[in-house]
Computed example of a mutant assay.
Amino acid sequence: MAHTVEDQAETILLRIARGAGLRGAGGMRVVRRIRTPTNREVNIVRPMLSTTHQEAVTFLNALKITARHDGSNDDWERYARNRIRHRIIPELQALNPDAINAIDRFASIMKSHSDLVNVLVRDAMSESATEPTNVYLRSHFAQLHPIVAAATLSKMHRAVANTNTQLDEAHLTKLIDMIASGKSSNYDLPGGVSFKSDHMHIRMENANSVPSDVIPYPQPLGRTTELAVPGELDLGSGFTVTASLRPRGAGIPTASPDEAWLNPKIVVNKRLEIRNRRPSDRFNPLGMNQDVDLSDFLIKAKVAASWRDRIPLVTLTENGRIAWLPGIRPAEWAKLLPTHQIALHLKIERDPQIN
């Protein structure tokens, strides 16, 4: 396409007037990949974005080619772009004769900033990705800077939307607020996209696709089962839990939601137990100095009601005391201390190939 630097300046001013963000303020890209309504991906190439209109005309004249003039470009009453071309840009050039190039430089700066955000988006998606595809850890998103969070959500949306639709500021603000709340929720977005979140995950999927199974726990166990330390236990539904004793390096290891680093002294006779919750269960959450009713704690932690009876609790063999709620929190009394040279490492994993 033969867009020139003047076309770029007009596009930028038009986008700013309509409330464009960082990406839009960067103007048109030299190469842009789009998806057509028939789901074909094509490249739009604009090799003349640094060329002025006059330079293009001079080049054509040298080749004895007459430049085509579109009469609609003179109609500034009907077309917003023409009002910018014939009324606004001349006023800006009265203030700064080099206004066109100044706007182009502004676009280049915005592109650089946008490229930086894209790198942060890529890192955010990589660090919070889970199985299955396009499902991410909510807690990680909740810690992102709003600009990075908005750009990441926009990229997630583009990956599954039916058409080249975009999320506006109202959509993004609502999505960020929903993620921060940690509540289970659904939100229909443009392009046939459905956003779903719970206390652990967020995901976007095409409304016509098969919903992703992101329940982070197996089916109810039905009985109490021993977990050898070290050892591995098949929980069914493609889930396994592993236990190991590891030398601890400097500092307290940072755990992801699906693992815990605990006091190795809680293990008696090289055994722990795995079971589901009981009506009488109480739990001493990390960071609290007293036991609380487990059911009340799960409600306050915004754990989906359908998940609560599926959580494979890790407990002591002698008294059934809860040491770890996988995916949620370890117990205060079972935490790893700086004086411990060996750590008890627990991890729950799901085979993405098994439904």
Results as ranks from 00 to 15, higher is better:
S280V: 08
L286Y: 15
K174M: 12
V292F: 14
K265P: 00
P211H: 02
L172W: 00
L235N: 11
F297K: 04
D258K: 04
A255L: 02
N186K: 14
H199L: 00
T225G: 02
I274A: 04
D281N: 14
L189T: 00
E273G: 15
N284R: 13
F239S: 00
D258E: 10
L298D: 00
E259W: 09
G238T: 07
A207F: 04
S185K: 05
P230I: 01
I266D: 00
K270Q: 15
P216S: 04
N206D: 10
L233E: 03
N186R: 13
T224P: 01
P230N: 04
N269W: 06
G236I: 04
A228C: 10
G236E: 06
K300M: 01
L235T: 09
S256G: 08
P247E: 07
K270N: 15
G251D: 03
G249C: 08
P220S: 06
M178W: 09
L233R: 03
N289H: 14
I299F: 14
R223W: 04
R275T: 02
P247F: 06
I266W: 00
L235Q: 11
N206P: 07
R271M: 10
N208K: 15
T242G: 11
H171A: 09
P218I: 10
G287E: 04
D213G: 07
G222Y: 12
H199D: 10
S194P: 11
